[in-house]
């Protein structure tokens, strides 16, 4: 058996401690050990962005983070975006603008957009397209996603 480590981290404000393989992907720790299944797996190689989360305030691909490097980390997943049943302005805009079609890229896309608006509250279209370029979507052609991000940015004004 592989050495296990005791991993402590905070997910959406809640503390968790658990025994994991040191190279368990943070993605699997979230999905399988902690049952935060909102975060998805699309490629396992940091290409599609479907597994994006915020780790210590930065957008990362959770499939490329070994558990050992998440030690003591503060994590935000899609489950942490709404305030109870109240959607964040981005979630609301994705809903009303049809920014989510199949919905599989949506959790990662929402985290990337949240991160983008924190760094740049009023991005133009080019900035949105660059900011989300690590998050692939196969349904929308990105038009409604860009619209949703800009709508949320306007509403926050």
């Amino acid at each position: 058996m592989a050495d296990q480590i005791m991993l402590s981290l905070k997910v959406n404000g809640q503390s968790h401690s658990l025994q994991v393989h040191p190279f368990a992907r943070l993605l699997d720790v979230l999905r399988e050990d902690l049952r935060f299944t909102g975060t998805k797996e699309g490629c396992g190689e940091g290409e599609c962005g479907v597994c994006s989360i915020l780790l210590n305030g930065r957008l990362v691909n959770s499939c490329l983070v070994p558990a050992v490097q998440a030690q003591g980390g503060e994590i935000v997943t899609v489950e942490g975006l709404a305030d109870g049943q109240r959607l964040s302005s981005l979630q609301d805009a994705f809903l009303t603008q049809n920014g989510a079609q199949c919905g599989f890229c949506t959790p990662g896309m929402l985290l990337a957009a949240t991160d983008l608006l924190q760094r740049n509250p009023h991005p133009d279209e080019a900035a949105v397209r660059e900011g989300l370029a690590g998050n692939l979507c196969r349904c929308t052609g990105y038009v409604k996603i860009v619209d949703a991000v800009q709508t949320a940015a306007r509403e926050a004004r």
Partner: peptide, 9 residues
């Protein structure tokens, strides 16, 4: 089903 999709549920 949009609400469940943006909530991740």
């Amino acid at each position: 089903e949009g609400r469940a999709k943006v909530l991740g549920t």
